[in-house]
Design a protein around this nucleic acid. Structure first.
Lengths: 228, 228
DNA sequence: CCCGATTGTAACATAACCGTCGCAACAAAA
DNA sequence: TTTTGTTGCGACGGTTATGTTACAATCGGG
């Protein structure tokens, strides 16, 4: 099928894991282990999506992304950036290099596949570097690490912020506690699922009347609803 | 496009790096490695901007700048000075030699491109009186290397000044410590991120009540806010 | 050559955040 | 209604991030 995805990373383990996950999700995976090969294969296969590690030998991931966007042949291909540290996210966004989304390591394969599908849905309609989530009066700007409700800033901790974003990105669909644990806390976290409850509670508290967006689905988990 | 930039430096590495960065940013780069060639190429290409290293063989960078400003053909071209040490900034400014801005080594390419765009924006509008950043009662004049709060001068060291300018130029957006390190201290600085905290503290101390502009975003970094 | 200013780092203090627990409130099943 | 399981809530220590202070090294000016 034409659903080819290009994966660029210098670690073979990551490549294998991603290729496996993507093939399982119905994509065709092509891999590259450095920037030069990435640019070459991007032109060659014209994938529908590129997953690009920030840290690459020789040519930086940022540079690769810029060159992809500068080439008319590959400019329209959505790019998902992989970053090792959450702190680098701001840097990426600030550079305005044209990445369409980012995922921080460690990530869950499930999360990545969801992002991919989200990106491709978005690309089908209006492609935009959507770093802003908005539901009703609730506005979340990922680039600024800032959430606003009715225009007023909501002071959230880093964990609460990521939890809110995760829920909003999958709005309408129930998220189990285990899934939230792996997606917010990372795939290797060994924690009590009740911890999620506590953070949901704190999040609701700070959200005030916007807390009604966060629904409890008894026996399953939580859901962010936009149809109040 | 006519966006030609002349780069003058005696080190080939610096020339390469700058030319690369500028071309990525959409400029056309012309280089010169000494003062005589610089004057020649300035008259020849009539660039929209000149990046001029202070230390040059044979003819001093200061002398080059003076001659550029004395020649009617090149007098109107904005000049950005490159200096190895922040302390020399005062010297440049004191000499009133006509430079429009300065950047201290080591610098980040990102920073330089930002300065260039700023300079060119300014040149498009009014005559060069030095770029002034203004938020509330806080005024910062980059060209004069001067900061004022409620009209009273704030005595800042070179590092503190650069930190303040960097934060103000990206007002509203969180700046991680790593990013501030690369933008204020240079692209190859290997320093403790806690150093940033210390300098932020010193800056806040000197700013007095204007310190509220400098916000801490726990777990992320610092942010200069104008929406208090 | 000496002295003050500046700077980066380390050490300590403090505040914020996080994960867990126990219990009460609640809902679904029996 | 009773029973059983689930979730909300508040609180408690442990951990981490940041504020604060102090100090040695460096640099430049006098």
């Amino acid at each position: 099928m034409a659903d080819t995805v290009l994966i660029v990373d210098d670690e073979q383990d990551v490549l294998d894991m991603l290729a496996f996950s993507l093939q399982k999700a119905g994509f065709k995976a092509v891999t590259a282990c450095d920037g030069a090969a990435a640019l070459q294969k991007a032109r060659d296969h014209l994938p529908v999506l590129i997953i690009l590690d920030l840290m690459l030998p020789k040519v930086d991931g940022i540079e690769v992304c810029k060159q992809l966007k500068a080439d008319g042949k590959t400019a329209s291909i959505p790019v998902i950036m992989l970053t090792a540290k959450a702190e680098e996210v701001d840097r990426i966004v600030g550079l305005e290099l044209g990445a369409d989304d980012y995922v921080t390591k460690p990530f869950s394969p499930r999360e990545l596949v969801l992002r991919i599908k989200s990106i491709m849905r978005r690309a089908g309609g209006k492609a935009k570097t959507g770093e802003a989530l908005k539901v009703g009066d609730l506005f979340v700007d990922i680039a600024k690490h800032e959430a606003r409700f009715k225009g007023k800033p909501v002071d959230l901790t880093a964990t609460e912020f990521k939890l809110l974003v995760t829920l909003m990105e999958r709005r309408g669909r129930v998220q189990t506690r285990d899934r939230l644990l792996t997606d917010v806390w990372g795939y290797e976290s060994e924690m009590d699922t009740r911890t999620v409850d506590t953070h949901v509670r704190r999040l609701r508290e700070k959200l005030g009347s916007a807390a009604e967006y966060v629904e409890t689905v008894r026996g399953v988990g939580y859901r962010f609803t936009d149809s109040v």
